[in-house]
Design a protein around this nucleic acid. Structure first.
Lengths: 336, 336
DNA sequence: CCGTATATACTCATAGTGAGCATAATCGGA
DNA sequence: TCCGATTATGCTCACTATGAGTATATACGG
């Protein structure tokens, strides 16, 4: 019969900021995770994303709830906020039937980086700490040839015929092998594949015993529960969003040089962009306008300071920064 | 204090099919709405989307839950399913504090049309019944100049200066006025604007008394609770998805003529497409392959039957049917 | 005042896209 | 049998977007 196991609902936030060339997310680190909710793992070492229960009366909408409690607990005022995904797998928090089923409505939020305050043990972390294979700014990360590809090869050869073909194809698409292009957006797909392969600590933990916290070689810092999966979802969404909405501007100061803007995009997308084309895109696309002022601290020739042109929102249909490879064509890395 | 008002969680489905040139959604119509859940309005006339409570133990994931209960109640086997959005506004079901707060996780699903079976009072309805202003296949729907535009004008002139500018801009973007292009995807934006204007019956009901069920002139069939908003979200998502994922093929038979395929896309997008360019897109894009067989029942020259090329999924990055206006440029209607 | 570093401008080849013209294959009736 | 209507299919053209590369401008430190 239904109705025996209670259901609780929580809110979850993936809060993104960028410092210089480092994309960051807000995490709650260390031990007193249990402050955050009733259902925390006993493991004291793991990070979690900010989350908490939903107060059924306090706010008119879920988004307002998120904004309020992030602000109350960390002092951060969020800029752009959008609903990310609702996570509700039966065993995502615990496999026991004695523990309530937790449905988490996750939000993606952008903030200009500020030091978080408050009693909450919040801190910013570079998101590539959790996903080292996602940062291609310096070329292909070494974990891929060293660890991922061999593991994929074994996995692929574990079955035959049709099934083998499917694995081959899936691995190719996810990691840009065999003539496919590396697609920065497929973050979740890659994480899930690594999870399936058992390369990611969480999958061992979920399959075997909670105590398993072996450091997998170069495969990033784990998180508690399914929070790394939530984060992967958020990172993928963030990258996708970059393409067709001018969201970067939520992450940079009011005026900025084009190089600075480019660095922020590159940090998020995890790839290097062609400088001249980036300028063209952003200027001719009407996304920015010059202020006439210059920034002389750049090293060489001083750079003009630009600002975001809000008007673009009504002019163009989908103003974003089309990352390369939007159509087809291979992406080449363009050394720093 | 929190915790006094209970929270319940439900699942909600927007199930899409296309019959000939009519895009349809599955609705539960008529009186015994209360079968579907504990919290139904007393009004016997209104349609709802299929929805029900979540069984916390039955299925491993929410998506499996949706598939199971749709199949149990209507006999439909769903094809493509994706999570749509989670609706959790405090007063979405009732304003009273004595009624639990209902969080609904909505899914978008595609099905080839079949007659629904089972005790559930399910039926297909053309979705333009609910959104008459969204169907531009025969040119601009008359409600827009007749009803919407005058109402927008009044609304815009209700304030001054900056605020007026903002309204002007918002209306322009949503309905493609003042040099903006009609964007088929902005379904939710338009619905919400009409709701704010009070043109849509639901907004009167929510503001005043539940008994208000006046037929608004040409502004479509209302639904119970916020289900029409959910539907608008689904329709918008569906249209967006068309652009970059080959989802249409879930809605057509295994083989089809290109004209038939085009009609289905047009039905969903609510606009007419340029025939030759549609062919080019779909053929040269590698989305379909000819079967060699012909369909002679088309009237003029027989048309070749095509099938979907699954392989495209691994070849191209984002294979969809880029509707016109993806970049900029005005969309022209191309009379039937 | 020269080398280095960064910023900005311009060119070129190619691919995608909106629009329209031209040709092919069927049918029903004159 | 041939013609007009009807639908399918093929092709051209202009224009824009984009990936890539070359060239010029303006600062700094010696």
């Amino acid at each position: 019969m239904k109705g025996e196991r209670p259901i609780v609902i929580g809110l979850n936030a993936v809060i993104v900021a960028v410092t210089r060339e480092s994309p960051r997310i807000l995490t709650i680190s260390g031990s007193s995770v249990s402050d955050a909710g009733a259902h925390a793992s006993p493991d004291a070492q793991l990070d979690v994303l900010p989350f908490g229960p939903l107060d059924p009366e306090a706010d008119r909408t879920l988004e307002l709830s998120i904004r309020r409690w992030v602000s109350e607990r960390t002092g951060l005022e969020l800029g752009y906020v959008e609903q990310l995904y609702t996570f509700g797998d039966r065993d995502r928090v615990a496999r026991s039937k004695d523990v309530p089923r937790v449905i988490s409505v996750a939000y993606l939020a952008l903030a200009r980086e500020q030091r978080p305050s408050g009693s909450y043990r919040a801190r910013w972390r570079d998101w590539y700490t959790f996903f080292p294979w996602e940062d291609w700014r310096g070329g292909q990360p070494s974990v891929i040839p060293d660890v991922v590809e061999p593991a994929l090869a074994t996995w692929i050869d574990g079955v035959r015929d049709r099934a083998r073909e499917e694995r081959l194809e899936r691995a190719g698409i996810a990691f840009g092998l065999r003539g496919s292009t590396w697609d920065p957006d497929r973050v979740l797909e890659r994480y899930e594949l690594l999870y399936e392969l058992g390369l990611v600590v969480e999958s061992l933990r979920d399959r075997d015993r909670p105590e398993t916290t072996v450091d997998s070689p170069g495969l990033g810092r784990p998180m508690d529960m399914d929070h790394r999966r939530i984060l992967a979802t958020g990172l993928g969404r963030m990258r996708g969003k970059l393409r067709y909405r001018p969201v970067v501007f939520e992450l940079v100061p009011r005026t900025f040089t084009l190089t600075r803007l480019q660095r922020v995009v590159e940090a998020l997308a995890g790839i290097r962009l062609h400088k001249q084309n980036f300028r063209r895109l952003v200027e001719r696309g009407g996304l920015v306008e010059g202020t006439g002022r210059l920034d002389t601290r750049t090293g060489g020739r001083p750079a003009e300071l630009f600002r975001f042109r809000r008007e673009v929102l009504r002019e163009r249909r989908a103003p974003g920064l089309g990352l390369p490879g939007t159509r087809r064509g291979r992406h080449t890395v363009d050394g720093p």
